[in-house]
Design a protein around this nucleic acid. Structure first.
Lengths: 144, 144
DNA sequence: ACCATTAACTTGACTACCTCAAGTATCGGG
DNA sequence: CCCGATACTTGAGGTAGTCAAGTTAATGGT
């Protein structure tokens, strides 16, 4: 037989969980080396442009009041800035400062374990992995 | 060319992160439906047999004193039991109660998004995914 | 056998994260 | 103009995480 009987869903589930955990550990450890918590770095990672507080709460899947505290701490370190939205005075847009952008870049670059793991795959494997993960994520995203 | 140039490492990194996050959200949401936090459920998931507190700290990659609190709360709910280790009186082994085992089983079963996502793959895709993830995790595990 | 070291666990103090309820300011439609 | 909805903040309360210190028990060397 070509395939040694496909792995059970339980085994796959376990593996996906283990991978997610390992990746988060790697990310958090790298963030810690730059004086950030994992959550702070994750928020920073979402700031490719200005994002309203509410939008961050949606992205992080948490209450808006939680975002207030995280942004407070990032702002105190000068990695992020709140600026008023010109078209809606209720909204505060969060923007990464130059230092913030540089910091998150370094955090990503410092994920040694993840980089090493990905380096172990050749181009073909990466393409296959990408396709499979994309498919998985699409199923994982919306609702059930 | 057959492959549309393999995806950049950055894109793959991002995808792995997104997948990890989505999976954790799904797990935590299912745990919450059973009155548990994600961390509590994760600890419970490791209890296939008796595990000393220290071992749990290693598995969860956190300080031993942190485990004390988590186990306290699980024990208060009757999902877990501390029992003395016969061969080393310093050690307390944590064991899941029947209710604890049943609860974690239900939490896993309640991960609707993950199950749906995995159901979208055929046997061949699962086998390929499993192999790739296993490879990734092995690289992600030890040191750099 | 004895003592020093080391290991497992808990406690206490402190911070971060997270949610909910309530409050303030603003927006937008009738 | 007023009412309801939306964006954000604040405060209370609980979980999660770290570090330092303390207790108890195992262990190794002499």
């Amino acid at each position: 037989m070509t395939a040694p009987t496909s792995p059970t869903k339980e085994r796959l589930l376990e593996l996906v969980a283990a991978l997610g955990t390992a990746q988060w550990q790697d990310f958090s450890a790298s963030a810690a080396r730059h004086g950030l918590t994992g959550v702070q770095a994750k928020l920073l990672a979402h700031l490719k442009g200005p994002v309203p507080m509410r939008g961050l709460a949606t992205l992080l899947v948490c209450d808006a009041s939680n975002v207030t505290g995280i942004v407070d701490r990032l702002e105190a370190r000068g990695l992020v800035r709140r600026e008023p939205d010109p078209s809606d005075r209720r909204v505060k847009n969060v923007v990464a400062t130059d230092e913030g952008r540089e910091t998150i870049r370094r955090v990503r670059a410092g994920m040694h374990a993840t980089h090493t793991a990905l380096d172990a795959l050749d181009a073909e494997q990466r393409t296959a992995l990408y396709a499979l993960l994309e498919r998985l994520r699409d199923g994982l995203r919306p609702g059930s």
